[in-house]
Design a binder for these strands. Structure first.
Lengths: 229, 229
DNA sequence: CTGACACCGATTGGATCCAAAATCCAGACT
DNA sequence: AGTCTGGATTTTGGATCCAATCGGTGTCAG
């Protein structure tokens, strides 16, 4: 795992904290999103500090940042863990996504330039050529977050990112179980969204994106084995 | 200003961090929500530490907590400030509330016992008897957050709280300008919501709450002077 | 054999000290 | 006179050390 990584297209969360805190946060973020740290895993401050050659203090700061991003949870005098979610919690998070992400997309539409449209098309092209499951997770995330990148409303951005972070592990488990097998559905929906974005059609963008997330939620509901401990 | 305060009905945000961090966080939270610290104000770590007789470290932790709650914002090597929002940002936050809070209410409905219904009715009664503007802010917040108190989905709870926190100052400015003068509208809407909650009618609850927030957003949009620097 | 209690190791929380970065002001130069 | 540069001051970021708290284990009484 590389140390610099961080979220592919996250313009936020980079400035906050000092240099060391940011390094530690990037390391842990990559470890959790990448699947090395899984829900329920405990994170000991000293372990991380020793591994990265820093003191425990920037680790503490990093854990607080990650908590705000939904990647860790804290309990006083007991430390940090990667949150473990129930099936119902994930379902509600998808319902939150259904409502928030169309809003973020509409806020973003006007600010997206043609360069962004081209980048989006390029990412979608790579999704369709791709056949690696872990790579799909990254590209899909990049596609959607890129469509929101014109949105300047800070709480909206951070909440959308947080919702993606929280469900990342379950998305991985889902595709690993072959759930995302009918890729042509995903691709056709992505193309509808991309088209609406290029046309800057807020109504269509909102409708297609909402439907895309809703379908995913329903299909995920048919696979309770994803949530087995 | 009292030191113990904290958010009236916030079940979350109490466990995290140690004792000193929690005290500092509660102090700052009360100062910001209470209006002593206003948008744009800078928060110097040493000032707070000296004032509360703690070291700077718990202040740093507290500032991180508050950042997650939307009450402060950070910049590396530059410190913390109370965020200043534009009119458009506040409007989008209200749109987020329109979409998220009905969801939180529906998730909460089934878990609310009769005791909660009685407490709600009591709070609403006090709102109708009340004639102090600052007191109205508190009671209104308590009413709504109480209706969501049965919701156990952590990210949903924290996001709803964060949205309330972010707009608290502008709500205050709005009522101070006499914007919330037609209290009978607020009260009739609250009664509709309360009734739907008692009947556990998800459809009505969602509809009335959404309408309540939407009307507030639109009325707020007619008062741009609230957002004057 | 089981349950309660006390002790001890492990881990997090807090305080103090030091380093680095940013801001502010003065002075010189254009 | 205005602007740029340099240093001094202020403020935040990081490291180390010490205290408080939690979890497990072992022991003793019932």
């Amino acid at each position: 795992m590389t140390i610099d990584s961080g979220t592919p297209s996250a313009r936020d969360t980079v400035d906050t904290g000092g240099a060391a805190s940011a390094r530690v946060a990037a390391y842990l973020r990559a470890a959790i999103l990448g699947g090395e740290l899984r829900p329920g895993d405990r994170i000991r401050q000293e372990d991380i500090a020793a591994r990265l050659g820093a003191s425990r203090l920037p680790v503490r700061e990093a854990l607080r940042m990650l908590e705000a991003e939904g990647l860790t949870e804290h309990e006083a005098n007991k430390g940090a863990r990667v949150p473990r979610l129930t099936q119902h919690e994930v379902e509600v998070i998808y319902r939150m996504r259904e409502r928030l992400e169309p809003l973020a997309l509409v806020e973003s539409l006007g600010a997206l330039a043609e360069v962004d449209h081209e980048r989006l098309a390029e990412v979608q092209r790579r999704i369709e050529e791709n056949d690696d499951l872990d790579r799909f997770l990254e590209l899909d995330r990049e596609f959607h977050l890129l469509t929101y990148s014109g949105c300047t409303i800070d709480p909206l951005n951070s909440m959308v990112t947080r919702l993606w972070n929280s469900t990342q592990h379950y998305r991985r488990a889902y595709v690993a179980l072959g759930g995302q097998s009918r890729m042509w559905v995903v691709n056709s929906e992505h193309r509808l969204i991309l088209d609406a974005v290029v046309r800057r059609d807020a109504t269509d963008a909102e409708r297609f994106l909402g439907g895309h997330i809703r379908r995913t939620r329903i299909e995920l509901g048919h696979h309770p084995e994803v949530f087995a401990p």
